[in-house]
Each structure stands twice: as structure tokens, then as C-alpha cells.
Design a protein around this nucleic acid. Structure first.
Length: 553
RNA sequence: GCGCCAGUAGCUCAGUUGGAUAGAGCAACGGACUUCUAAUCCGUAGGCCGAGGGUUCGAAUCCUUCCUGGCGCGCCA
């Protein structure tokens, strides 16, 4: 709709140049069209005359007059008016809006999709929590945001892969192994002193018990081997928990990528060798450093420590180099905001290899403040006051949980009140939106009983849809595609959430003011056509965010 | 000390590439169910967009200085 109008405006501008009414010949890169907040300002507005004021050296309103003289000739435009300092306001013919409904009906569950991302391969890596403990609420937010970002990108035509990076190498693995091993010895009746830096949580005892049940007593193996066995066992078990939790949350990954395998395949050494060949790394004090200061980092970073072991950064560098070698045009990492200090060195590393800064986009997920009845719910691994993601989902419900995580832009902190999220009332926005969907379904059931069927595009008489609120509703529906595009381009899935709330509000208001099923059959059918278009868009948006669209509530 | 994110109504937050009179929900107050689901709707009230300066036709939005809160600044992961 917008694109169509842009063409019309461009043609009018060119005509003005041909006629010599305007002389600069200036063609704007893109004609800016906005959706006015004030309905008096029409369906669309452009500031074109104001931006042309400088090159034309004429008053904006003069330029607008010339353009309007051309534009009124177009049948698409019902009215074209000049307003304020030089805005041109358009009101489109009702026919244009009725065509939108037909598009929705014909396209069904694909309505809203576009191809702006066609040909671009993007990888979204998210969650990537260490497999040393169950997922908590912070991981949940990252999981939902990552999943939704991937979904809107897909809807906008990008080719998307969802990946989980498993940090199954490094010190934390040994710590996990040792923790399980100690608990296991405890179970076998030994008196042990549990170290300060071990994992103290209850689930370690569960893992130890399970190990014992499945594998029996620890045999005479030496300590290092026993710890390693416990670690391997623990990682595998916890990974299963994580996979199960994500599944109940409705999140699926295309690819699980193991850090350990990165080492086993020799990828880390290979990639580090490439850096060395390019002169990006250097040795100093027995350690290997990456020269990240050349591209904006505060200091150079260690890849291989003086004791010969690798830093976490080393495998991360190799991992990201390999991502691009896999053919992705762009790579998105979803991280907890506490890792933000890491961004400059990663970007510097890629810049050294000739990548543009925007090839890697890091989405920082701000902290989640867990509350219960408005009071902070302090989580301490040691206090025992620990609540896992699974417990939150079980208590609050999947849809409400997802919706809360998506309601805010991810770079602002989120207060998550368990009692509030749990409420199945008007206080809970997720039900407000889902209720709109259920309401249309209910109307459909009543229509069916009354023998009224939803008309097809060629049998509907859209001329019955002329109330201002009906046209406003269609305008909102028409914005769905551009909303998804905006959410995709800016990596901001919360835009879809706000869109959904606006659409639901408009529908509820319309529903309260007007009956769909009235005495006049043509009007009933046309309104049924309209509300079912609303239903389709609600369902598409809900599905995009991983939310259900219930038919009854 | 340096860096990142945030600061908008009593509370929680939106606000598109800089656009017209800054919006929504909750809370408060007043209304609407013999009518397709009241998990809904309609109305009232509520603002120094953290503060100052700058850029321009035009700033919550861009630049700059400061204030406040959160988080980072390892040869940890």
C-alpha cells in the first residue's frame, strides 16, 4: 500500500519537473511516508515538500501546491491536502482498503511475510548457557527474544539458522565433574569437605545419585579419570534438562554446536594459525596475544596463556571465524548484558579479518528482576531460594511467560512479577490479545448456527464497510507487514507485541460499538469478512511470537 | 577512573529514518451487560520527556557537558 503510494508521488514529482513547475530535478532517495497519529491528517502523510524546500529554494507550501495539483488526478487518492508547515496528507479511496482484506484472505497464514531479506543468510546464536546447571529466568528471556528475532527475520525473507553453542570445554566442566564426584563419595559414606568454589546446588546431589543408580560405585579408577567421567555424565544430563526446558518453552534449535568438538577437530589451532599468518597475533611473555587494540579495543587480549592452555576468548574467536566460513552473511549473538564488555574485542577480531562491524550484531539482554507481589525475589545459588526457568513456566504458563519477555525492548531491564504474570485477568495483556482471537472464533460459531458463512473475496460486498472504525481497523491490518519488516531490520520483536496489543484494542472497541451479525445479510457477511481478516492477522502475529491462538477462553 | 545500557504520567513502559496537539496499560474517579463471550468497552484526571547548552523550518529522538541508577573493565568462564 505504502509502496504503491510512493510510486504515485514519484510520478507526480517527475511530472512537475517535465511541466517546469518545479526545477531542481532533485529526486529523493526514498519518499518518506508516515502513518499520522491524528486521523484528521489522513491515511498517510509525507514531508516531501519540506525536504525539497532547500534545493528548490521555494516555500514548502508552494511546492506542496504544485505536487497536489498533480496528485489529485490519481484515482487512488480520495483527498490530498496541504497542512501545517507543508505536509501533504492523503486519504485513500475505500477501494484500496478493501483490497487489503482480499490480500489477507487469499494469503492466509502467509500474510505478513515479505522478501526484503531474500538471499541473506543469518545465524542467530542464543541461550548458549553453560551446561553446568539448569536454565534460570535470565536464560529464558534470552531464549524467547532470540527465538522471536529469528522468527521475524524468517518472516521478512531472511534465511535463518538457530544455533546453541554448548560451552562443554573449560574449567567449569572440571568444576562440575569434581562437584558430582565429591557428592558421589559422600553417598558412598565418605566424609568430605566440599570446596568453596564447587557447585553447591541441590541438583548436583541428584546427578550424583543418578550416576550411582546407573553406573554403580566408583571403581578403583584414579581421581582425574573419575572426575572426567562425572563431568561427561553431568554435562550430558544437564544438556538433556536444557533441551527439555526449551522444548516446553516451544523453542527449537537447528543446530547444537559443541565447543569441545571445536577443539577435537583442531579448529581452534587452525583458526589461530590463520590469525598468526595475517600478523594479527603476537607472542609476549610466553603467551599468545590478539592485537585487538588496532581496531578500537582498550587492550590486546590473550589467546593462549603462558601455561599453554587456551582462554575462553580463543575458542570464541575460532568459533566466530568458523561461523563466517560456514557462509553466513550476518551473525547475531544474543548475550546477557553483563557480557557487554566482550563486544569490542570480538568486533576488533572480525575487523582485523576484514569484516564490517555490522556483520556481527550482539543483542544484549538486560537483567530480569524477579518479583513476587511487588517484592524482590532474591535469587542466591547458596540461599536455596533458587527458581529455575522450568518452575517459572510451570507456575506462570508458557504464553504469559513468553509474552512478558517480549513486551519490552531487550536492552531495558525487566521486572517480572510472578503473581502478576500468573493472573488470568484483564491485568494480563497476553489474555487481552488472545481473547480478541477467541471472540472472532465465537462470532464465527454464532454465524454458522445462523447459517451465515464467511464470504469469499469475489462474493463479498465491501461497500458495506465504510464506518470510520472499520477503515481504521483495515489500516491497522495493512501495517502488519511493515511492522514485521521493522522488527526484523532492527532486531526488535517487541514491535510485534505492541502491534498486537493495538490491533486487539481496536477490535475490542469495534466489537463493543457494532454488531457483526445484523439483520442486513450483506452487512453481516462483509463484517464477518473483516473480523476474520483480523483473526488471521492476530493468529499470524501470535504464532510468530510462539504464542497460542485459542478459539475459546 | 574508563566503557556500555537506561532515565518519558503515581507505577510499568511504547514512541519508526528527526515531524503536526508526547501515547498505552495498571492504579484513581465516573459510566455501559434482557443484544455475537464484561478476560470487554466508553469517559475524567494525570507530563519541566533527568538538567543545561548546541545543530534546524522542526528535537523525547542527533551532538556536547553534567546528574542519577544498573552492569562491566582477568593469562576467569
Amino acid at each position: 500500500m505504502k509502496q504503491q503510494l510512493r510510486q504515485v508521488i514519484l510520478a507526480a514529482l517527475q511530472q512537475c519537473y517535465v511541466d517546469g513547475i518545479l526545477s531542481s530535478g532533485e529526486l529523493p532517495g526514498e519518499i518518506q511516508l508516515e502513518n499520522p497519529k491524528n486521523p484528521d491528517h489522513g491515511d498517510f502523510a509525507t514531508n516531501l515538500a519540506m525536504t525539497l524546500a532547500k534545493p528548490e529554494r521555494k516555500a514548502p507550501r508552494k511546492i506542496a501546491e504544485a505536487l497536489v495539483a498533480e496528485l489529485v488526478k490519481n484515482p487512488l487518492c480520495e483527498t490530498v491536502e496541504i497542512a501545517g508547515p507543508g505536509f501533504i496528507n492523503f486519504r485513500l479511496a475505500a477501494k484500496c482498503w478493501h483490497d487489503v482484506l482480499e490480500q489477507i484472505m487469499v494469503q492466509g497464514d502467509t500474510f505478513g511475510r515479505s522478501e526484503i531479506g531474500a538471499g541473506t543468510k543469518i545465524q542467530v546464536e542464543f541461550v548458549s548457557a553453560n551446561p553446568t546447571g539448569p536454565l534460570h529466568i535470565g536464560h529464558g528471556r534470552g531464549a524467547v527474544v532470540g527465538d522471536a528475532v529469528a522468527a521475524v527475520l524468517q518472516a521478512a525473507g531472511f534465511e535463518v539458522q538457530r544455533e546453541y553453542y554448548i560451552n562443554d570445554a573449560g574449567n567449569q566442566v572440571t568444576t562440575l565433574g569434581r562437584s558430582i564426584w565429591l557428592r558421589l563419595r559422600e553417598l558412598q559414606g565418605e566424609e568430605i569437605t566440599f570446596p568453596e568454589d564447587g557447585y553447591q546446588a541441590e541438583y548436583i546431589n541428584e546427578l550424583a545419585a543418578k550416576y550411582r543408580a546407573e553406573r554403580g560405585e566408583l571403581a578403583g579408577a584414579n581421581e582425574a579419570e573419575a572426575i572426567k567421567a562425572c563431568a561427561t555424565f553431568g554435562i550430558a544430563e544437564i544438556l538433556e534438562w536444557i533441551k527439555a526446558d526449551l522444548q516446553t518453552f516451544g523453542i527449537e534449535f537447528d543446530h547444537w554446536y559443541s565447543e569441545q568438538q571445536l577443539y577435537d577437530r583442531g579448529m581452534v589451532d587452525q583458526e589461530l594459525a590463520k590469525l598468526k599468518d595475517k600478523g594479527l597475533s603476537f607472542e609476549q611473555e610466553d603467551a599468545l596475544w590478539l592485537r585487538t587494540t588496532e581496531h578500537g579495543d582498550d587492550k590486546d587480549r590473550v589467546l593462549i596463556k603462558s601455561d599453554g592452555s587456551y582462554t575462553y576468548f580463543a575458542s570464541d574467536v575460532a568459533y566466530h571465524m568458523e561461523k563466517f566460513e560456514r557462509g553466513f552473511d550476518r551473525v547475531i549473538d544474543v548475550w546477557g548484558a553483563d557480557h557487554h564488555g566482550y563486544i569490542p574485542r570480538m568486533k576488533a577480531m572480525l575487523a582485523g579479518l576484514g569484516h564490517a562491524p555490522e556483520d556481527l550484531e550482539v543483542l544484549l539482554i538486560q537483567m530480569v528482576n524477579l518479583l513476587r507481589d511487588g517484592k524482590p525475589f532474591i535469587m542466591g545459588k547458596r540461599s536455596g531460594n533458587f527458581i529455575t526457568l522450568k518452575e517459572v513456566i510451570d507456575e506462570v504458563g508458557r504464553d504469559a511467560c513468553r509474552f512478558y519477555f517480549l513486551m519490552r525492548r531487550c536492552d531495558s531491564q525487566l521486572d517480572f512479577d510472578l503473581e502478576l504474570a500468573k493472573q488470568q485477568s484483564s491485568d494480563n495483556p497476553v489474555y487481552y490479545v488472545q481473547y480478541a482471537h477467541a471472540r472472532v472464533c465465537s462470532i464465527n460459531r454464532n454465524a454458522e448456527t445462523a447459517g451465515v458463512t464467511v464470504p469469499t473475496s469475489d462474493t463479498v460486498d465491501c461497500s458495506c464497510l465504510k464506518l470510520p472504525e472499520e477503515l481504521a481497523l483495515i489500516r491497522q491490518l495493512a501495517r502488519f507487514t511493515e511492522t514485521i519488516e521493522g522488527a526484523a531490520v532492527h532486531y526488535e520483536p517487541h514491535r510485534v507485541v505492541f502491534y498486537l496489543q493495538d490491533l486487539a484494542a481496536q477490535f475490542h472497541s469495534y466489537y463493543n460499538k457494532n454488531r457483526v451479525l445484523v439483520d442486513d445479510p450483506a452487512t453481516s457477511r462483509a463484517r464477518l469478512y473483516l473480523v476474520n481478516s483480523v483473526r488471521i492477522v492476530l493468529a499470524n502475529a501470535l504464532s510468530l511470537l510462539g504464542l497460542s491462538a485459542p478459539e475459546r477462553m
